[in-house]
Structures are given as C-alpha cells and as structure tokens.
Design a binder for these strands. Structure first.
Lengths: 248, 248
DNA sequence: GAGTGGTCTAGACCACCCC
DNA sequence: GGGTGGTCTAGACCACTCT
C-alpha cells in the first residue's frame, strides 16, 4: 500500500517533505494566518491540506516546537508561541541569582531617542549606515536593586510611532510589547559576552563606582526568516547574580 | 497487524517504550559495551535485541543524538561521540574572536596540585568537604596571546595517578585526555558567568594589569547519569574575543 | 464521547557509503 | 550489491482535555 511519496512541492535540490511542510507552516506564521497564542489546525487537518501523512506533518511540527516557535499541548492542540505568557515573558533572560532562583525584573525606562545607525549597528541589523533608528535606555531591577542597564536599538522603519509614552504602557518585556503592538515575534537571539569597566553613565544608573567590572551582553534578536530586528547591549552587575548557560 | 506494544520493560509508572530503550542504551554506554568513537549496533539489530520496531529504536537514538551522546552517520552507522575527534576537541569552548572565527587554543600547564575540597567545590562535585582533590592550573593562548587562565578541580578518587607528567602528554583538551586515560566521558556542562577584576596571579599569567576586567566562567561538567565530575573556573580576557551563545 | 496530541508498528523506498 | 541511516505512509491504540 505505501506508494512513493507524492512530491507535494518538488524543489530543485532534494528536500525532505517534512522540511517543505515546515517551510509552508512558517510562511503561514509570517503571513499571520495564526496569531501568537492561537491554536494552529490539528495534525490531521494539516495532513489533509498538504496531502501528506500525519507523521510527516508531525515531524515538521516537532522541528518548530523544538525551536520554541510552536508549543504542543496534549489533548488540546498545537499553539503559536508567544512572549505574552507569564512564563515566557523573559524567555531570553539568562541572569539568575547565585542561589539559582530566576527572579522577574522590574523595568524603569530612562529615555527613548531617535537617531541614526552607526556602522556596527547597521551591520547587525542589516541596515544602511545612517538609517533612522530608535534607541531605548532602561534599567532592570532585581529584588529592588538596579542590576542591568540596557541600550536597545530598533529600526524606526519597522516600528512607526514608537515613543516613550507607548513603551511605558508595556507591562513587562519589550518583546511582549512589540508582539502585541506590532505583531512582530522574536524567535531567536545571538549573544556575545565580555567583561568591561563601568563608565560614568552606567555607574550612575546602577549606583556603583566608575570602573566596577560589568558583564557586557551584546544581543542581536531575530524574527522569522532570520531577519535581525533588535540590537541590544546590556551592562550587568554580577554581584549576587550570574549569567547561566547550559552546554551540551 | 499492529498489536499493542509488547511491553519490553514494564515499569511502575508509565514510560514510553522509546524512553526505556534510551535508558537501556545509556546503561550499555556506561558499562562500556561500546567505547567512544566506536559504532553501536545497527537500528535493525537493536530493534531485534529489544523486541521493538525500528522506529522505536530510532526515536531513542534520536534523543541521544540530540544530546550529542551519539552521532549518526548516514550510510555508515551510529557512533559513540568522543572528545578525541578534532572537531569535538573543544566542544564546550564558547570563546570566539570578534570576527567570528573559532580558533583552537594552545595549552600551557602551570601546575598540578593535590589538596582538599572546600565547601563550594565539595557541593558542586557532590563530595564531602575536605575530600581529596586535584587542582590544575593552565593557560590557554589564542593566536599566541594568553587569554584564559583556568583552574580545574577534579576528585582524586576518580583519577588515580593523575599528575603533571601524565597531563602534559595530553594533546589538546582535558576532556579528550580524561576520556582516553580514564574512560570517563563528559556529557554536558553548566556555566555561570560573572565580570570580575584580575587579581595578582591572573594578571601575571595573562600579562595584564591587576584590576583589568575579566570574564569569570564557572563550570560544572557532568558525565553519564548527571554525575558532576569537574569544577572549573576560567578567567578570560575578553579583548578581541567574546563568549558566544545562542538563545532559542 | 469526541477530538487532540503521543506512541508503536510494519513495510516500502530513497540516499549514502563502501566493497 | 548489500548494509546503514533517512523518509514516508497507513493504521491501531493510548493518554489527555473538554464538554
């Protein structure tokens, strides 16, 4: 009974069917066919739509679930992941207290400015040097202590009308805010860590002495299709806290 | 024709078959039935041995492969991962140059001493405070520059006869050496990063000024069964280099 | 009970490697 | 050509959730 796989989307070079399905699902996500937090159609429905077996759809969904783009819930369905849910608010935050607890930070915004992209940021965000950008400064406090000074840079073109008023309304994380206000989901990020000395500005904001060693965390965050959307530099006081990472 | 799965290993609480197979495979690995670098039996053979279908064995192997415990090679077989192979020599090293290249470091050993475990290390390695340990100091140089000062602590009980002479013979990474000399494979590691100031010893070894900000990387490395085996503190000069991490 | 994801099987065929 | 992993299918049954 098993006939050779019906080539649903014959591509030039060989691609497994489940990989093609994965691409189709991703395109539907980009197009906004299913919004963050919503359920996507059942595996059986998708199998019928794409004319493949349930097992093949399953493998495509498995891949997207392992990237935290979709979330499976047994007995209920498969959902589009969202930064809005409490547990995923600070999904990318790796700072934990030395005792191992993962605290939720409290945000205070310092300013929101408009400016032009320098060479480094332009390269990171795939913009032209001098392209208009928005720069946000904020401080994250853990257990009442200011610990992280963030500089966040976004392309103005992608986020029209973004200003201090708008952003201050956002409860919690920036990503949750960008998702609800602009429908843009962050799916992965790259970070580069260094040790630096606190400059005058950082010292003032974190209430420490100039020259104190700080953990500098540079991040580029990506949305669907590996499109870079945010550049960020976090300066973190690692006193009682550290950046946690697992290697496998 | 599909009968209810023959319960190969009926456990008290429910466990999927492929999970039980995964455990059996892991036990064989611990027992040394298949050594690092060797091929394990084919999926068909394993399916016959455990009286399950090929697909179930496949899923168990998939899990182990995703943890980098096994390595699949199409057309050849499935192999036990090893730190000995060139590409995996520095599998856990996340320091890369700012241009993005991953250089291979050159190791020089400073000393190998015997001592007793302090409270912190005893906790990390699940030993009693005061248990005998071996402490290794070394420097890693990138492109001729000393960049990382490592302090490596191992339980003496696990590594009899380990001394400076032995360890200096080891080409490349410590893990590669421990694997060949003691048959002990590191499976995964946890790291905690902080920013600190260079003390006199670090300054001397890295040829920098005292007080220079350094990236402090504390690591606990585990072997099979999540058994902690190594505690390590790396002090890294992040000048032209950074610690790279991907978040998903 | 109906619907969803999760497990397991059996079998066919494909892509890759090596003799 | 024969062996290995990799893909795909079709179908049965289990576990979970909601109603």
């Amino acid at each position: 009974m098993p006939k050779p796989a019906a080539a649903a989307l014959p591509g030039p070079s060989f691609r497994p069917l489940y990989d093609q399905i994965k691409i189709l699902l991703t395109q539907s996500l980009i197009a906004g066919e299913w919004k963050p937090g919503e359920a996507i159609p059942s595996e059986m429905e998708l199998a019928a739509r794409y004319r493949v077996s349930q097992g093949t759809v399953r493998k495509a969904i498995d891949a997207l679930a392992s990237e935290s783009i979709l979330v499976r819930r047994q007995g209920k369905g498969t959902y589009v992941a969202t930064h809005t849910e409490p547990n995923y608010q600070y999904r990318f935050l790796r700072i934990i207290s030395n005792s191992g607890e993962k605290h939720h930070p409290v945000t205070s915004f310092i300013d929101v400015k408009r400016g032009k992209a320098g060479a480094e940021i332009a390269r990171a965000l795939a913009l032209k040097t001098g392209a208009p950008v928005i720069t946000i400064h904020r401080v994250l406090a853990f257990a009442g202590r200011p610990l992280i000074l963030d500089e966040i840079v976004l392309s103005s073109a992608l986020f029209p009308g973004l200003d201090m008023d708008k952003i201050e309304q956002s409860r919690g994380s920036i990503y949750s805010f960008l998702e609800t206000a602009y429908g843009l989901r962050m799916i992965r990020a790259e970070e580069r860590l260094r040790a630096v000395s606190a400059d005058a500005f950082a010292a003032k904001q974190l209430k420490i002495k100039t020259g104190t060693p700080l953990l500098s965390v540079d991040r580029i965050a990506f949305t669907y299709g590996d499109k870079p959307v945010e550049w960020r530099r976090g300066l973190c006081l690692t006193d009682g806290y550290s950046y946690y990472n697992e290697l496998a």
